Computed example of a mutant assay.
Amino acid sequence: MNSAFDDFLTLEVNHLDVNVLTGIYSEETHLPQPLRISIRARLKMADHYAPDTPLSRSKNYMDLKHAATAALPEGQHFTLIEAVADHIIDTIFMQDDKVLHVEVKIIKLALSEKGEEIGITLGRPRR
């Protein structure tokens, strides 16, 4: 049983600005929209991380970045940003079975008028 005091390892990639075809309104559906994407992935961790611990005991941060950039299908329109987050989560789970939980936060930059962050956070455990 996990407690609030168990060790954990979370990899993070924050504030990736990515242009994605998304939206439900006609003015949104033909041009990519700027999204700010942040990802947190909780992993099974090693008992201890010594100076010579190999990367295979963790995960490459660049895999998270890849899931939110190059792994998004080019030309694919996502009606909802929730679907973008879902795709990113699925990609990260497929990359590595050490990933236990993924959280994706997406901010729609085009909606911001005074620096506010408007968007969603979607989290899912491995099933």
Rank of each mutant, 00 (worst) to 15 (best):
H66D: 11
H66A: 12
A67M: 02
A67D: 02
A67H: 03
A67K: 03
A68W: 04
A68S: 07
A68C: 08
T69P: 05
T69V: 10
A70Y: 04
A70G: 08
A71D: 07
L72M: 11
L72G: 09
L72K: 09
P73T: 14
P73E: 14
P73D: 12
E74D: 14
E74L: 13
E74Q: 14
G75E: 06
G75L: 05
Q76D: 08
H77I: 01
H77A: 01
F78S: 02
T79H: 07
T79V: 07
L80Q: 06
I81A: 01
I81M: 04
I81L: 01
I81T: 05
E82A: 00
E82Q: 08
E82V: 04
E82Y: 07
A83N: 14
A83R: 12
A83K: 12
V84P: 00
A85V: 01
A85G: 10
A85W: 03
A85M: 00
A85N: 02
A85S: 05
D86P: 02
D86L: 07
H87R: 13
H87D: 05
H87N: 07
I88E: 02
I89E: 00
I89S: 00
I89T: 05
D90V: 11
D90M: 10
D90L: 10
I92T: 03
I92R: 03
I92A: 01
F93N: 10
M94F: 04
M94A: 13
D96R: 01
D97K: 10
D97V: 14
K98Y: 06
V99E: 01
V99G: 02
V99K: 00
L100M: 15
L100A: 13
L100W: 07
L100K: 13
H101V: 09
H101L: 14
H101C: 11
H101D: 15
E103C: 11
E103A: 15
E103I: 06
V104L: 05
K105S: 15
K105H: 14
I106W: 07
I107R: 04
I107D: 15
K108Y: 07
K108M: 06
L109C: 11
L109W: 08
L109N: 10
L109E: 12
L109M: 11
A110D: 13
L111K: 07
L111Q: 12
L111A: 11
S112F: 10
S112A: 14
S112W: 10
E113H: 13
K114T: 15
K114P: 01
G115S: 08
G115L: 06
G115T: 09
G115M: 08
G115R: 09
E116P: 04
E117M: 08
E117G: 04
I118C: 01
I118E: 03
I118P: 00
G119H: 08
G119N: 09
I120P: 05
I120D: 05
I120T: 02
T121R: 10
G123I: 10
G123K: 12
R124I: 13
R124L: 13
P125D: 15
